[in-house]
C-alpha cells in the first residue's frame, strides 16, 4: 500500500507539472516520443496470471455487494482489486476471434496503432476487425494513446483512447463509447492515476467483445500491461 501511495504521488506530481507547464497535447496518434525516466515508470510485473477458475464465485460476491444496480455501468462497479482483470481474462479464454487471414510477425512485441484496429463498420454485422488486430490476439504488442478520465481512483484498469477524450465515455450512460479504445489492465498490484500526457503500453493483446452481463463492463481490445510509460 505504501508503495502504491508513492507511485500515486509521483504521477500526480508529474501530471500537475504538465498542466502548469501548459504543454499543448497533440491530438491524433502519437508517433515518435521519448519516455521521461524520472516519473514515467508506473509499474511492471511478471507475466499475466493464468485464467482464474473462480470467476463465477467472484461475480456472485459482486452481485451481493451491489444489489441495487439494475443496469450497471462501469461507474456502478465495486469490483475488488484485480477482479476486473480476472473477469476479462476469463472472457478472453471463452471468446477468441477467428482470423480471416493470419498475419505472421517477425518479432515481438508488435507495434499497432488505433487506426489499424478496424476495416470499417457493417450496419448489419458490426465492426470489422482488421487482420492485423486479429492476428495479434494473445501476442505481445505496443499501443500508444491517451488515458480517458478515470472512472474512479485506484482502478486496476483504465481506458486508452486514440485522441484525448473530451469526456469520460463511462460517465454518462447516454454517451456512446468510441470504438477506438482499449482497456488496459495494470500489472498486478499496481493501480493507476490520470495523466493527460500520451502513454505507451506494452503487454499481451487480447481481442474479442467482452461484455459481462452482471457488471456491464464492455471491451473489445484489452492489453494486459507489463509496462506502462508516460511519454513527454
Amino acid at each position: 500500500m505504501l508503495r502504491r501511495q508513492l507511485f500515486l504521488s509521483l504521477i500526480a506530481a508529474a501530471a500537475s507539472l504538465t498542466l502548469l507547464g501548459g504543454c499543448s497535447i497533440p491530438s491524433g496518434a502519437v508517433q515518435q516520443v521519448t519516455p521521461l525516466p524520472q516519473t514515467a515508470f508506473v509499474g511492471t510485473a511478471a507475466a499475466t496470471p493464468a485464467l482464474q477458475a473462480s470467476f463465477t464465485a467472484q461475480m456472485d460476491e459482486s452481485q451481493q455487494g451491489n444489489p441495487e444496480a439494475v443496469t450497471p455501468t462501469p461507474l456502478d462497479l465495486n469490483l475488488l482489486e484485480g477482479q476486473a482483470r480476472a473477469i476479462a481474462a476469463a472472457t478472453d479464454a471463452a471468446l477468441q476471434p477467428t482470423p480471416r487471414s493470419v498475419i505472421t510477425f517477425d518479432s515481438e512485441p508488435v507495434r499497432i496503432r488505433f487506426d489499424e484496429f478496424y476495416d470499417g463498420y457493417n450496419l448489419r454485422t458490426g465492426l470489422l476487425l482488421s487482420d492485423k488486430l486479429v492476428s495479434l490476439d494473445g501476442r505481445q504488442a505496443v499501443l500508444e494513446g491517451y488515458m480517458a478520465p478515470p472512472l474512479k481512483p485506484e482502478l486496476d484498469y483504465f481506458v486508452l483512447t486514440r485522441v484525448k477524450l473530451a469526456f469520460c465515455p463511462f460517465c454518462s450512460t447516454a454517451s456512446d463509447w468510441p470504438d477506438d479504445i482499449a482497456l488496459i489492465y495494470m500489472p498486478d498490484g499496481m493501480s493507476t492515476v490520470a495523466t493527460d500526457r500520451p502513454v505507451r503500453i506494452t503487454g499481451r493483446l487480447e481481442i474479442g467483445q467482452s461484455v459481462d452481463q452482471e457488471t456491464g463492463m464492455v471491451s473489445l481490445v484489452r492489453l494486459y500491461a507489463d509496462l506502462v510509460e508516460a511519454l513527454g
Binding site: 443496469t71 471468446l95 463498420y121 450496419l123 448489419r124 454485422t125 458490426g126 465492426l127 470489422l128 476487425l129 456512446d176 463509447w177 470504438d179 474479442g208 467483445q209 461484455v211 452481463q213 456491464g216 464492455v218 473489445l220
Partner: peptide, 21 residues
Amino acid sequence: ARRLIPQTVEGSRREDDRDLY
C-alpha cells in the same frame, strides 16, 4: 445499429444476446 446486434458481436451496445435484426 449497435443496439440491434447481439453483445457478442464486435461493435454492439446491447447487454444481451438478442439479435434484433
